[in-house]
Design a protein around this nucleic acid. Structure first.
Lengths: 151, 151
DNA sequence: ATAATAAAAGATAAAAAACTCTTTTATTAT
DNA sequence: ATAATAAAAGAGTTTTTTATCTTTTATTAT
């Protein structure tokens, strides 16, 4: 079988997380960031990223302004959003409820064979994405220690 | 955005894990299991599952025999395979090396912003899927305590 | 040898995800 | 008011994944 890529999140979600971190950093100095700059800065296809930004905007995870000097930006409360909030907005909350084997009725009382094995993993994953807010990233991300582009 | 499903593994991989567990259980009493029975027992589309079984067979994770009384079966060494082996066979080993944000060059020295956050999670996930062999499941899976069908 | 069985392989179709291009709407500055 | 700017929205296309259907090959039992 030749699936090249199978990552934890969808491509859209990967782009969304990158974009949010990118804009978060620029938002420190009250800058608005245009879609072209976001696409370049995250190495994502511009028009595809535009769609994702629309989604994020519609879901109130980010602010936007049309017209000259317009673009995307974040206020203090936007920076409180976590990776989990972004994932929920783009990929939905299936990561919270869905069985790893895709079973609809999988539960504590009616578990699939791998249910209990994955329970802890998922708990840690969820805790992590909930605890990591954009504000927290902003503190960590200082000059050249991390990167968002595909080199 | 309206992706209904975004699970850890691909659909093919979910089916593969279910099928392997299903056949593993039947293999205790030297039974061979036909593709129809596997599809029914795991609530998967028959012809699609057939393709997956071919993959698993080609990759030597399971044995098969054509003709009357033929079907899929496992020997003792097949039962030593872990969930990780199945995942690697179907979804590839991207879970081992790929960056959560899809960056090709992400590494310890050149990390994406979420690299270190996800490092532990992935380590635990990998440990878990490697430690859970089919043989181990066979011991755990006793009468009606777990299920594989979508009810 | 022949018929029946069951997996393997091939070829195609449908659905979802990823990506692109064009038009519209809102805002700002002149 | 007008032109320029930039996001929003609409309408595609392409690629990948999932699923189905048909033909071939191997094996067994008669």
């Amino acid at each position: 079988m030749f699936q090249q890529i199978k990552t934890m999140f969808s491509k859209s979600c990967e782009y969304a997380i990158k974009a949010m971190i990118f804009v978060a950093q620029k938002s420190k100095e009250e800058q608005r960031v245009g879609i072209k700059e976001i696409a370049k800065g995250t190495d994502a296809p511009e028009h595809f990223m535009a769609k994702i930004m629309q989604d994020l905007s519609r879901r109130k995870l980010i602010h936007s302004a049309k017209g000259p000097n317009g673009g995307f930006y974040m206020d203090a409360s936007d920076l409180k959003n976590s990776i989990a909030d972004i994932v929920k907005a783009i990929d939905g909350d299936t990561i919270y409820k869905d069985c790893v084997l895709g079973l609809k009725e999988c539960s504590e009382k009616n578990p699939c064979p791998v249910h209990f094995e994955f329970k802890e993993i998922k708990k840690n994953l969820i805790k992590m994405i909930e605890n990591n807010t954009l504000a927290a990233f902003n503190e960590k991300l200082d000059s050249g220690k991390f990167f968002l582009r595909n080199k």
